[in-house]
Design a protein around this nucleic acid. Structure first.
Lengths: 68, 68
DNA sequence: TCATTTTGTAGACTATAGTCCGTGGTACAA
DNA sequence: TTGTACCACGGACTATAGTCTACAAAATGA
């Protein structure tokens, strides 16, 4: 189990559940759209601050991103 | 509440509970000793892979590091 | 179809994560 | 005093996080 892949899948799943595009999430989290794409595809080793930005942007507790 | 500070405090608390030195944790997590120090003092923006390495080294589920 | 939205990815770039060297400080035991 | 274990921190360094631009490919709906 690759943690980057698992985290990326979670982000995508929660984002889609909320009906938000990558572009909108990027705007809310103040990140680049292409970076969100990289994260969701398990290619990025995100920092703890980025993890929090994304959790806040999606209005979901950080813990939920680590329930695999 | 600074996420880096909160995370660092958690790492220190759990590490001390386990009676492990920074040096030993660094060795177990395959990280640099001075970097562990920086993390515990809330000065480092650790990556998701590093978060997992530390959790595994301390044998604690990642989720526990995010229960503030 | 066709237009529009959404996404993947590449390349070049800047900022910073993480390493490795060292020094010094504190605490405790011999 | 001396040794030893632990920790904070600085500087210099390499690897990579994260940005930005651009283009192409799906996907979606009319």
């Amino acid at each position: 189990m690759d943690i980057k892949v698992a985290y990326g899948k979670k982000v995508r799943q929660i984002r889609k559940d909320k009906g938000v595009s990558q572009e909108k999430l990027a705007e809310l989290a103040e990140l680049d759209r292409t970076y969100i794409s990289g994260i969701e595809n398990g290619k990025r080793n995100v920092s703890i601050e980025t993890i929090f930005k994304i959790a806040e942007a999606l209005n979901i507790p950080v813990i939920e991103f680590f329930e695999f």
